[in-house]
Simulated scan of single mutants.
Amino acid sequence: MKRFSKRFMDTLRLHVRSGRGGMGQPRYGGIGGKGGDIYVEAQEEQTLRKILEANPQKRWSAASGGDSQKFRICGEAAKDLIIPVPVGTTVRLDQNKVLGEVNQKGDKVLVARGGAGGSSINKYNGQKGQVQNIQLELKLIADVGLVGFPNAGKSTLLRAISNAKPKVASYPFTTLQPNIGMAEFHDGHQVSIADLPGLIEGSWANFGMGHKFLRHVERTKLLLFVVDVNGFQLGPKHPHRSVTENVIILNKELEMYSSDLLEKPAILMVNKMDCLLAETKLENLLKDLSQMKEISLNFPEEFCPDQLVTFEDIIPCSARANRASVNYLKERLREILNFHGDQERNQVAIETKAREKIQRQLTERSIKLV
């Protein structure tokens, strides 16, 4: 059996062929059965790797419709073929056209329509099914997405705040694949948190982990920026960036990928507050953030964001050494998620009432006209 790498897989290309329509029966006016359609359907506990392991050739074909026969005038329609995919999958054609998304269990997207059965319309010849090359693109769905450069302490935080056990080490790029943990509260409430591969400068242009990281940020409800109070240096050939510079460059990376990301609620966590002179560095950061616009204008143009992220809270923390700071962060995440969830539900209720009112007015007017 072919062996597969166990690294996280978030894209998969498949070749799909729907079923051909069955042949008609011109002598008796019989109609052939319709060929099977092919759908992708969101299922829990499914992964793209399981799809690959189930069908290493990556070719999926639906059955053909039954032919019309002397004693069965209408040919039997073929069963549809269902490809189980993870929740949060976007389905694209090779030309990059989006066919649809499956964001909840049971959501389905038609990817190849079966051919029509033979009839008088097509001279009783069953029609070919559609042949498509599709791309499955997984975007993790989580309440909170951790955003930060390598070695900022995201994995350490996830271990401290949830039941996840990501690899932790004192060198960059420890996290090479997304990890999701669940932060649990005493009343049973849970918040899902995604620790994603660290950004580097140029990720928006697909350098480093690039889009492999950034696509997963799109479906999170809240962004948690995690920065090292001491700043960050990717390697000896790269400049050392202060914590303020890191915040601005992270802002720019998200903006260049999609400015919509900056509309999401965001919290800034300043990590490693157990280090020497951390309090002084934090004071300098808070002062810089109050003058963020002026400071960012002094950056080279390629690092200067057009739109600055607005942080709803700035929280100093030591994910490794201060449990109380982690617990405080955990509670704030829940509070802010609940606040925005309530706002969203209220907005939906207002829009629903407005639509119902308009519908009633239209109905009343139509009655009067009659």
Rank of each mutant, 00 (worst) to 15 (best):
Val109Ser: 09
Ile73Val: 13
Ile141Asp: 02
Leu254Ala: 01
Ile314Cys: 00
Leu110Glu: 01
Ala319Leu: 09
Leu369Trp: 10
Ser318Glu: 02
Glu263Thr: 11
Ala152Leu: 05
Gly188His: 04
Glu255Asp: 00
Thr156Cys: 07
Pro300Asp: 11
Ile31Gly: 07
Phe207Trp: 12
Tyr171Gly: 13
Gly341His: 12
Leu234Glu: 12
Gln95His: 10
Glu331Thr: 04
Asn206Ala: 15
Leu99His: 02
Arg72Tyr: 08
Trp60Cys: 06
Ile336Thr: 07
His186Thr: 09
Gly129Leu: 01
Leu136Gln: 08
Asp187Pro: 04
Arg241Met: 15
Leu146Val: 10
Val111Leu: 04
Gly21Asp: 05
Ile314Gly: 02
Val217Met: 06
Ala142Thr: 06
Leu286Asn: 03
Met1Gln: 12
Ala63Leu: 10
Leu136Met: 12
Gly115Ile: 04
Ile121Tyr: 14
Phe149Ala: 04
Met9Asp: 08
Glu53Gly: 14
Phe173Val: 09
Ala160Glu: 04
Gly24Gln: 11
Arg355Ala: 15
Lys105Gln: 06
Tyr171Pro: 12
Leu14Pro: 05
Lys281Val: 06
Ala205Lys: 13
Glu351Lys: 15
Lys154Asn: 07
Ser18Glu: 04
Leu297Tyr: 11
Lys357Gln: 12
Gln307Ser: 03
Lys353Thr: 10
Phe8Trp: 14
Asn133Gly: 03
Val326Gly: 02
Pro84His: 10
Ile38Gly: 00
Ser258Cys: 07
Lys264Ala: 06
Val227Arg: 08
Leu369Asn: 13
Asp306Leu: 01
Gly341Asn: 09
Arg59Asp: 05
Lys368His: 14
Leu222Lys: 03
Gly35His: 09
Phe339Arg: 13
Glu312His: 07
Ser64Gln: 11
Gly75Ser: 09
Leu157Tyr: 02
Leu337Arg: 02
Lys357Ile: 11
Asp37Gln: 00
Asp94Val: 02
Gly32Ile: 05
Gly210Asp: 02
Ala160Val: 02
Gly75Tyr: 06
Thr363Gly: 10
Glu253Cys: 01
Val131Met: 03
Gln347Tyr: 15
Lys287His: 06
Leu14Phe: 00
Asn298His: 10
Glu201Met: 08
Leu234Pro: 12
Ala54Glu: 15
Lys50Thr: 14
Lys128Cys: 08
Phe8Asn: 11
Val98Glu: 11
Leu99Thr: 01
Leu12Tyr: 11
Asn96Ile: 05
Gln57Lys: 12
Ala116Tyr: 14
Gly75Asn: 08
Ile367Gln: 12
Asp342Pro: 05
Leu52Asp: 07
Lys165Ile: 13
Ser68Ala: 15
